[in-house]
């Protein structure tokens, strides 16, 4: 069962009766719970009368929605063209090595970091670029990674 639904109920109330609410509703619900799991989808469906299948369809369509719990810090690796030709993959391998992620894993076992690839972050002149939470790191070399990760606990 979903707990602490007060804030969520207020959120649903805010959007009640409006058109096109599902995406902003899911965005704000994700801010509250960190990710959108099956329970949350069913709860929203029951309250808004939007079919759960439609909620699942939207939640899985957009890359912003996370269906699993994320680490405390999210590392976004820019996969834009400029970063690609500037060998951002070497940065990715350095991150995977430092975070000791196994194939298929994106979150460290201590929930410290989640590693994701994103389309262009739009800072192409600083390629290769990664973003940790809201901070962008540019003109990276694989050797820089250890020092950068040390700033996050």
């Amino acid at each position: 069962m979903l707990e602490n639904t007060d804030k969520l109920d207020a959120l649903i109330q805010k959007y009640q009766g409006q058109e096109g609410i599902l995406i902003p509703l899911l965005q704000e619900a994700q801010e509250l719970y960190g990710h959108i799991n099956k329970e949350l989808m069913l709860y929203l469906s029951a309250k808004t009368e939007i079919p759960a299948a439609e909620i699942f369809g939207v939640a899985t369509f957009y890359s912003m929605f996370k269906l699993k719990a994320q680490g405390r810090h999210v590392i976004k690796i820019c996969k834009g063209t400029a970063c690609h030709v500037s060998d951002v993959d070497s940065i990715k391998f350095a991150l995977i090595e430092q975070l000791k992620l196994r194939p298929g894993e994106d979150t460290t076992s201590d929930m410290r970091f989640t590693l994701v690839e994103v389309a262009c972050l739009g800072c192409c002149s600083l390629a290769p670029v990664i973003m940790i939470d809201d901070k962008t790191y540019g003109k990276l070399a694989p050797e820089d990674i250890v020092g950068i990760l040390a700033n996050y606990s």
């Binding site: 996969k79 834009g80 063209t81 400029a82 690609h84 262009c120 739009g122 800072c123 192409c124």
Partner: peptide, 11 residues
């Protein structure tokens, strides 16, 4: 919705 990788004019 400037999604093209390698484009940041609109931003």
């Amino acid at each position: 919705d400037e999604g093209d990788p390698g484009a940041f004019m609109d931003r």
